[in-house]
């Protein structure tokens, strides 16, 4: 009895404080709004499992409270009930199959290669121990040429524009995780995985490495900078290219094996995660 009461109590408690809840979602009003879809699906699963949880716990608590051993009463002699078995098989089966089918549309939108935006990739994102290298194709629109722009740990994009990136890894597995866009994809050595998303609010958001990648896995933190307009983005691109040309003369693009700490920890970390 105590058992079940404690159980129910400790779980209802958890959902009260909004600070404890999902992070602010910034992929809600944008055209693809995957973040909103995922949150809605999450809430749907939460409502269904929450209802099942409460009902099951009530039944369990009731049984524990109602039927403790007393000397005058014998237990009911029953081996089961066919009708009940059929009922509690079919109903959950229908709910579960509904859930699987209902979710598959969103899954297809986020991951199926056929739903990939038709545009060329904005950037290549390469994970390596222990930072993220963003490579923009530069003026010629081609990766791997001398005018490529390399940025460490900061992916710049434009608000409301569908972003397509090519995700790669240079050494071990990493995972490209944007909690506020509800997006995650592993980076696998030897594979180029396309990833697409959009963001509805300009600002700076955190990029997490979510796949164990070695001793420094915990500090493989990157940023996603979302510019309000294309002009602002172009402006940034111009200055970043100028900076690159100054520190590293053209032709000597950032070597793949560059060691040491990232040079561009430009953004202050104070305002991250909230609207700018």
């Amino acid at each position: 009895m105590v058992t079940a009461a404690l159980c129910v109590g400790s779980f209802l408690y958890a959902m009260i404080d909004p600070n404890w809840w999902l992070l602010q979602n910034v992929s809600v009003k944008s055209p693809m709004h995957f973040g909103a879809e995922i949150d809605n699906l999450f809430m749907l699963v939460l409502e269904i499992t929450g209802a099942v949880f409460v009902l099951t716990m009530l039944a369990l608590s009731w049984a524990l409270w109602r039927y403790p051993h007393t000397s005058g009463r014998a237990a009911v002699y029953s081996h089961g009930n066919h009708k009940l078995e059929i009922v509690w098989t079919l109903i959950p089966a229908l709910i579960l199959i509904f859930l699987a089918i209902y979710q598959s549309g969103t899954w297809a939108d986020i991951k199926f290669r056929t739903r990939k935006p038709k545009s060329t990739p904005l950037a290549q994102v390469t994970g390596r121990q222990f930072n993220w290298v963003m490579r923009y194709p530069g003026a010629d629109g081609k990766f791997g040429t001398t005018d490529d722009l390399h940025v460490m740990n900061n992916l710049h994009i434009v608000k409301d524009q569908a972003v397509l990136i090519d995700l790669k890894s240079q050494d071990v597995l990493h995972s490209f995780f944007l909690p506020q866009i509800r997006l995650k994809q592993d980076a696998v050595p030897g594979m180029t995985v396309p990833v697409w998303f959009d963001v509805d609010t300009a600002g700076t958001y955190e990029l997490v490495c979510a796949e164990l990648c070695g001793w420094g896995h915990y500090k493989m933190r990157g940023l996603l900078t979302v510019h309000e307009t294309q002009e602002e983005f172009n402006e940034w691109m111009k200055s970043a290219l100028a900076e690159q040309n100054r520190t590293q003369p053209p032709g000597a693009a950032l070597p793949e094996s560059d060691a040491g700490e990232p040079a561009t920890a430009a953004t202050s970390s104070a305002s991250i995660g909230e609207k700018s």
Partner: peptide, 9 residues
């Protein structure tokens, strides 16, 4: 839960 139900716990 069906096993507990109506038992003598």
């Amino acid at each position: 839960i069906g096993t507990l139900w109506g038992g003598s716990l």
